[in-house]
Design a protein around this nucleic acid. Structure first.
Length: 344
DNA sequence: CGTCTTTGACCTGCGC
DNA sequence: GCGCAGGTCAAAGACG
């Protein structure tokens, strides 16, 4: 933990927090999950957390959004415009992380789709077997209550137009019928590169200026046939060094860049026993090995000879990663050798 | 020639 | 109903 991070502060009354996320002056290309995170309103305070934590490290700042948080979808209601979470949002996926819990389920909370009883065009837009998410009860509630509150930028037109190019004559929707929402997975990355390589091939299909932001939002679609996964990439107007990436949907194919095995890739792969250990399926995007290797700092053993390009461009200090407090979740994996605990 | 990006127009949903 | 903003389409151009 750096001094800079120690100097960061979180105001629990105003739910405001921010500063040099990485504590390194902002020169890291590593994805991280340290974002302004009011979702911790349902967390213990830092003091409480540290007091009750069995962790031997004090590097965890609970105001950083954790990897698990992201996987659970709590980043999905992040308001890109304001740089805050929409806490008034009824659909806010309240999935508090309980460090003392033995629950190792890090399945992302979906913000829609299957919870609504399936998409309206499931036949033409088949989901992967793994995408039939097992929803918790609150997720069902999320969908039921979400109609009035989701921010516009997080709305999705759903997958009904997937392969249908005649979108402009889209089918009329029954009154009261909600467009199904795709699963979303958002994270923030401190990077000078807008479009981070994640192993998949993407085609840009749109770019829009974002209100109150000098940075446009870019829209990408997976180039794989019949894969409806989309992602949006934009820079935070509050901190231009931060790239906000939002994945929507789930790939129905393997990552073209990684078919070889790797613990990190296996972690989030569709067939991961880790993901399915406490849930029947995954709603996570399945990232490539390289991407995960970058996200999960470890481990030179992962790439002893061929470190990812991002690694090659930065010094060890610059490669510092803010470890999520849920790090122990990963440690508990049988194949946890891919992860090394950072020195306190 | 195939793939990808750019970009203006259009569609959709929401708030007033 | 209207205006606004986000999201998508698709033609045109760039590029290898």
């Amino acid at each position: 933990m750096s001094d800079d991070q120690q100097n960061d502060a979180y105001d629990y009354t105003s739910n405001t927090f921010y500063h040099d996320y990485m504590g390194n002056g902002g020169n890291s290309a590593f994805p991280f999950f340290g974002i302004k995170n009011p979702s911790i309103y349902n967390r213990p305070s830092p003091a409480q957390n540290l007091a009750g934590s069995s962790s031997t490290t004090s590097s965890y700042d609970p105001s950083y959004l954790s990897f698990t948080d992201c996987l659970q979808g709590s980043a999905a209601d992040y308001n890109f415009l304001s740089g805050t979470f929409d806490m008034s949002c009824d659909s806010f996926p309240v999935c508090p992380v309980d460090n003392s819990s033995s629950d190792k389920n890090i399945i992302a909370t979906s913000l829609g789709d299957a919870a609504a009883g399936g998409t309206t065009n499931s036949a033409e837009n088949p989901r992967t077997p793994n995408s039939s998410v097992s929803f918790s009860s609150n997720e069902t509630g999320i969908e039921e209550e979400s109609s009035k509150s989701n921010t516009a930028d997080l709305r999705t037109k759903g997958s009904e137009d997937g392969d249908d190019k005649s979108k402009k004559s889209s089918k009329p929707r029954k009154k009261g019928e909600k467009k199904p929402k795709e699963q979303r997975f958002a994270f923030m990355t401190k990077s000078e590169i807008d479009h981070l390589e994640d192993g998949y091939r993407w085609r840009k299909y749109g770019q829009k200026a974002v209100k109150n932001s000098p940075f446009p939002r870019n829209y990408y679609r997976c180039t794989s046939q019949k894969c409806t996964v989309k992602k949006r990439v934009e820079r935070s107007f509050q901190d231009p060094s931060i790239v906000i990436t939002t994945y929507e949907g789930q790939h129905n194919h393997h990552c073209p860049a990684t078919l070889r095995g790797n613990a990190a890739a296996m972690l989030l792969s569709p067939n991961s026993s880790f993901l399915s250990s406490n849930s029947s399926s995954s709603s996570l995007p399945n990232f490539s090995q390289e991407f995960l290797t970058q996200m999960l700092p470890t481990a030179s053993s992962n790439y002893p000879n061929n470190p990812p390009s991002y690694y090659q461009n930065f010094s060890p200090q610059q490669q510092q990663f803010h470890f999520p407090h849920d790090y122990n979740y990963f440690q508990d994996m049988n194949n946890s050798s891919f992860m090394h605990k950072p020195e306190p």
